[in-house]
Nucleic acid binder design. Structure first.
Lengths: 199, 199
DNA sequence: ACCTGAACACCGTTCAAGT
DNA sequence: ACCTGAACACCGTTCAAGT
């Protein structure tokens, strides 16, 4: 006898985001997510294969949000401004949802890691900007440098690192300025397709 | 009736490092650590308050190892060479013990986080080098930039990021070169106490 | 078809009892 | 003093039974 569904994968993901934001990854239990979605834990197994896949879906949802925010942040027309705007967008996201953002940069087991294609969409605007700054030959290496710095910085900030005093916001500004100028200089010294800073 | 101790806190830490290296943080259970130390799980509670403190002690052991390796890597006399050597030392450590190294850059709950003083020792040589390169006013911000980049890069590499092709080792070399040159330039353009690159 | 209570395995933790 | 088996709470997962 068919019965109507009382929840959906999307509702489960939304419930998962809420629990994650409030209680962190350890608090993201099947029981709590099920309760937030209005069912019992065993019912979740009709939509997801288990907790690893639930984590994967929730992480994918975070990545998609980051990708959308990054894309709309990188629209000033000036690549140096765009790069700075993207960095500060990430910092805002991290401050607004530390647990959700932290999930992005966590070494997740294979079954919990979002699809590489999901990440690729988020990186698109960054690659465009580093390409304009450093030239096509260095676009990927420069993007990796910026991504590594930003993710490391924000994760350390969220984890309560940076205990040696001085203003953390100043260190963030120092870092993004240093990187932007260095990458732009990299583009300037190579003849290969690097335009002026204003693309 | 007193009985001789059958294990020790140090033996528990050593056992923890071994289990962590082999099975990762999730595999670091009280049961397995106890077995590796030659006792039963409840006995561990004579030496550690619970799993959070066990994780804290194991993480502190990793930090101490990193501090020692960094200190001996930064001894060439040339700050630019030292900075590069420290970066590659971290990359070697990450490759040799991915799970142990990964623990360093994980957002650990408060009761599992090693003492800030433990980290301070590891950062000492780095601060000296960035001070020589960028001058005292920018030593800390520069050190934070390098630390953020290195930790972010290595964690992404360990997590299987960098899926877009091209050589990851090249991106690492690009990053450390870019940062070293940019930080040295920062020192050169300020008059405040920055010596020549050769200190 | 979908949902649930009951049951099981696993792990952290406590504690009374052993030596 | 230190160690242990037994017990409990919690969580992921399975499954037979309900609708």
């Amino acid at each position: 006898m068919p019965t109507p569904a009382r929840t959906s994968t999307q509702a489960i993901i939304t419930a998962g985001r809420m629990i994650l934001a409030r209680e962190g990854l350890d608090g993201l239990t099947m029981e709590k997510v099920a309760a937030a979605a209005g069912v019992r834990a065993p019912s979740l197994y009709k939509r997801v294969s288990g907790r690893p896949e639930l984590v994967r879906l929730v992480a994918g949802d975070v990545v998609a949000e980051v990708a959308a925010d990054l894309a709309s942040a990188a629209s000033s027309g000036d690549p140096a401004s765009d790069l700075r705007a993207m960095a500060y967008t990430l910092r805002s996201l991290a401050a607004r949802d530390p647990h959700g953002f932290g999930l992005l940069f966590q070494p997740l087991p294979a079954h919990s890691a979002p699809d590489p294609a999901t990440y690729a969409a988020a990186v698109g605007p960054l690659l465009r900007v580093t390409g304009e700054l450093a030239g096509p030959d260095h676009a990927l290496a420069a993007a990796r440098t910026v991504t590594a710095w930003a993710s490391g910085f924000l994760r350390m900030e969220l984890a309560g690192g940076f205990q040696l005093g001085e203003d953390v916001a100043d260190a963030f500004a120092y870092g993004i300025t240093l990187l932007t100028e260095a990458i732009a200089r990299e583009g300037g010294k190579s003849a290969s397709g690097a335009g002026p800073i204003r693309a």
